[in-house]
Amino acid sequence: MHAGSAILQLLVAGIGTGSIYALIALGFNVVFKSTGAMNFAQGEWVVMGGMISALLFASTHNIGLACIAAVVIVSVIGILSERLVVWPLRRPNALLITLVSIGLAICSRSLVMMILGKKPVGYPGFSEASTLFVGGIAIQTQTLWIVGLTLVFLLAMHLFFEHTIMGKALRAAAADRDAAAIVGVRVETTVMLSFAIAAFGGALAGALITPLTLSSYDQGALFGFKGFSAAMLGGIGSLPGAIVGGLALGLLEAFGSFYISSDFKDAIAFAVLLAILFARPAGLLGRADVVKV
């Protein structure tokens, strides 16, 4: 293959996986914003999105319906998770919620294994034709779906947080819980809503990636870690940071596994995470918190 088209090919692949990481990173960021905690159940919601889509596709043979229903179901699971595990905490704090989320992740994984089985599942891409040839490179149509729907979702999130009173209430509660309560925001509801959004983003990522990679119950931890690395890379808590971090990580993986070795693909995320924690803990777009006392 021609060097130029190899680079283009890698670029497309990197943007595709990068979009998936951006969706997962957004989930980390939204929950972090509202609780200050890292939600390590995020990766399990990706798996649920893929596996429930596959189950519904097997019975309905309607891929759009199956994926939409799966994303909605997982969002409800996100809400239930918050109500069952976070809401009952008498004195919630960031560390406690983070620890509890690890337990939630392990329980979710076991439940998925028991209910949906251990076998990897999949379904065809959203379009009939699976590959397009453009300018000498092959693009999987599913990659276009991934990038397109990720953009739509992120844009919708941007509009929600910047232009609706509910979105502003979420930001206000993230900035100062007490002051948000003073103006009448029910802070527990904003936490629940942030879990719903995070689960929605995760499930969407799972439903989109499954046609390319299949989906199995034990992938959650890796998805979670990739999304976490992307969130840290972009700047935890920052919504544009999720996009920048996700794409940067996707591209690094694509180019790294081509030019170094595909054996290192997963190691790249961890190397990036370590490097960013050493060099710039606030992330590319994050800034150190300025606290005025």
Partner: peptide
């Protein structure tokens, strides 16, 4: 209540802070 220490929403704009004051009248 105007709380002790002012407690404005620091990352949000002045206009958004005022909007949040009217939260109960908007939602």
């Amino acid at each position: 209540l105007v709380p002790e220490g002012r407690r404005v929403f620091a990352p949000m704009t002045v206009r958004e802070n005022l909007e949040m004051g009217a939260y109960r009248r908007l939602w």
